[in-house]
Amino acid sequence: MSRVPSPPPPAEMSSGPVAESWCYTQIKVVKFSYMWTINNFSFCREEMGEVIKSSTFSSGANDKLKWCLRVNPKGLDEESKDYLSLYLLLVSCPKSEVRAKFKFSILNAKGEETKAMESQRAYRFVQGKDWGFKKFIRRDFLLDEANGLLPDDKLTLFCEVSVVQDSVNISGQNTMNMVKVPECRLADELGGLWENSRFTDCCLCVAGQEFQAHKAILAARSPVFSAMFEHEMEESKKNRVEINDVEPEVFKEMMCFIYTGKAPNLDKMADDLLAAADKYALERLKVMCEDALCSNLSVENAAEILILADLHSADQLKTQAVDFINYHASDVLETSGWKSMVVSHPHLVAEAYRSLASAQCPFLGPPRKRLKQS
């Protein structure tokens, strides 16, 4: 649940008159999402009104509101027999009622949201009550392989729920002597030191190019640089560091992050930047690179990204790559990247197969709970 924001200063709310007192009302909304995959969808019983329910879910471990999704594969009634019906059901509720908006969509073979439908307002739910769409999607369109909505005969539904909580009022009075504290510009100011090479005390040599930097900042941000300058190493004695395995453009992006906490060109060089972040123990930059690479996972590059993640101990990226390969196994196994990995990294192939087997055979063990970014 997000923290209630402070109200904007009255002088910034309007260029008009300023009242002596004010009130700011925040209506709290808890948002969460749920993904439900139905394997072997074409084998569902086709009687009209037949119901399939998901397991229950909530916004978190401490949330007492429990929900589930309900599907009628062949419609709810005679009117909707040519459609799939989809509903959000409130299973248990400690209150007399709650209000919530919802959005349903289908994830296609690429994991993209399609055929989205959402409620136009927050509906009133009581325990045992459901709301949804009797005519969510035509069955003939859903079952047509050309539309790519049932890869490997799996129907994957994605649901986003927004639950309306209580409202909170914050009130106060205006004073004539309003003090406005300026925003912190530390990142910009440190970035200026790097860009202008002011007050530098060490030189970093990268592929024949020299960059002036500040030992204190490098040591504070990177345990690797800290070790170089702290001990009686040649880098500490000469205040000069030779860097041979990072390209200059990648190095500059890494230094921008060290000084400012930002990497504006990360998406263009996420793979190389991940390697640099791993070498210099820049954990936050490493996770930022993992996130960017996750966003660009595809059938063509899944094997290469899995190898990269394994090489640099990028655990979150590795998990996402394995899950992606499992979901698109029939396509990924035909790529040149996968065939190369079979020869060069057989242990990763074995890991992917083990994960695929456990996903398809849940009876082999208890269900695993899916539970950071600093």
Results as ranks from 00 to 15, higher is better:
S298C: 12
Q360P: 14
W338M: 06
A109P: 09
A19S: 11
C68G: 11
G191I: 10
N108M: 14
E304Y: 11
I305F: 08
L190P: 08
K129R: 07
P73H: 07
V322A: 04
S55M: 10
K369V: 03
F158S: 12
Q165T: 03
D82G: 01
E118C: 07
V51T: 02
P223M: 08
I325W: 11
D201N: 06
L190S: 11
R221G: 13
V332W: 01
K81I: 02
Y123G: 09
K180V: 06
F133G: 13
C23G: 09
E234S: 15
S54P: 01
D331I: 12
V91E: 15
K115I: 15
S162N: 03
F211N: 14
L76A: 11
P9M: 05
F199A: 15
P7V: 04
R121E: 09
S96H: 11
L155F: 03
S14A: 02
A309V: 05
P346L: 09
L157F: 06
A207Y: 11
G208P: 15
R139E: 11
D315S: 08
D315R: 10
Q173S: 07
M233L: 14
T25W: 12
N239D: 02
G148K: 01
E235S: 01
E20Y: 13
C203E: 13
L317Q: 05
E210S: 15
Q120T: 14
K372Y: 08
I38Q: 06
L76V: 14
M35L: 05
F32S: 09
P248S: 03
S340D: 12
Y123A: 13
A109F: 04
G148I: 08
S295F: 07
S80N: 04
V71S: 10
E145Q: 15
L297N: 00
S355W: 08
S162Y: 05
N72C: 10
G191R: 03
L308N: 14
D130L: 00
C203H: 11
C93G: 11
K262N: 07
Y353E: 00
A146H: 04
K101L: 13
E145R: 09
V98L: 02
L193I: 02
S358E: 07
R45Q: 06
A321I: 09
S54L: 00
T319C: 06
T37V: 05
H231F: 15
L306H: 06
A116W: 12
S6W: 10
K369C: 02
V168C: 04
G261Q: 10
V206I: 11
Q120F: 10
S80A: 11
R221A: 13
K372D: 10
M254T: 01
V342D: 09
L190Y: 07
S298F: 04
P182K: 11
C289F: 00
N39G: 13
P182I: 12
P73C: 09
